[in-house]
């Protein structure tokens, strides 16, 4: 199967709902294609490379669109619907664009008794995100609650993109935000 851009052709112009044409991640000869082939070789069934492939898409694009699901499906021999079924199962895959700094505050029990709900409030207040799950008007931040980050002894842990910040208190929030690169 060819692996070119797989979005259906769309009429040019700015019609309502018009999207930019999808640009493939795993183009022929690209580093991502080589990387994906290397990962496929680790498994007896290439479908096992699905989660890794989706991670690559999210790293490059920030989220996983339906066009990207189709492309990944083409690469691994499964349908776009199958890929969507998998994407929707896992909470870390974004099905829509999110803020540049994706902030996940753990509020599960051990963190709750350490005051995690106040940390959530502080992040909402200082980022300008109006509510959990919304992106700030400047597009810089999204704040969500997350279930157990597995760092309960360092409550409250906060995951910001790839980094886990430990022992966060409301007072530390402004400094943490100031330290994020634009």
């Amino acid at each position: 199967m060819s692996h070119g851009p797989s979005a259906p052709p769309r009429a040019p112009g700015g019609a309502p709902g018009h999207h930019e044409p999808y640009v493939a991640v795993f183009t022929d000869g690209s580093a991502r294609q080589t990387e994906l082939r290397d990962i496929i070789s680790r498994y007896p069934d290439k479908r096992a490379a699905l989660l890794p492939a989706l991670w690559m898409v999210q790293q490059d694009r920030g989220w996983i669109s339906e066009d990207a699901m189709r492309e990944v499906g083409d690469q691994l021999g499964c349908t776009a619907a199958y890929v969507k079924g998998v994407v929707t199962f896992y909470t870390m895959y974004h099905q829509h664009p999110v803020g540049k700094h994706f902030i996940q505050v753990c509020t599960t029990s051990p963190c709750l008794c350490a005051g995690a709900d106040d940390v959530v409030k502080a992040f909402l207040e200082h980022t300008g995100c109006k509510e959990l799950g919304l992106t700030s008007p400047d597009g810089k931040y999204s704040v969500i609650e997350v279930e157990c980050l597995g760092a309960c002894g360092f409550a409250t842990p906060v995951q910001i993109n790839e980094d886990c910040v430990e022992n966060v208190t409301p007072a530390k929030v402004p400094e943490i935000l100031a330290g994020l690169r634009d």
């Binding site: 680790r42 096992a48 699905l50 989660l51 989706l54 896992y90 909470t91 895959y93």
Partner: peptide, 29 residues
């Protein structure tokens, strides 16, 4: 003896052994 890391994507249930295997195979966990 090959050893590889496989990265999950956010699902507590994948710590259940058979869910983990499904997830590793590229399925819903």
């Amino acid at each position: 003896i090959d050893v590889w890391v496989h990265k999950g994507a956010g699902a507590y249930i994948c710590g259940e052994e058979t869910a983990l295997m499904n997830s590793l195979e590229g399925k819903r966990g």
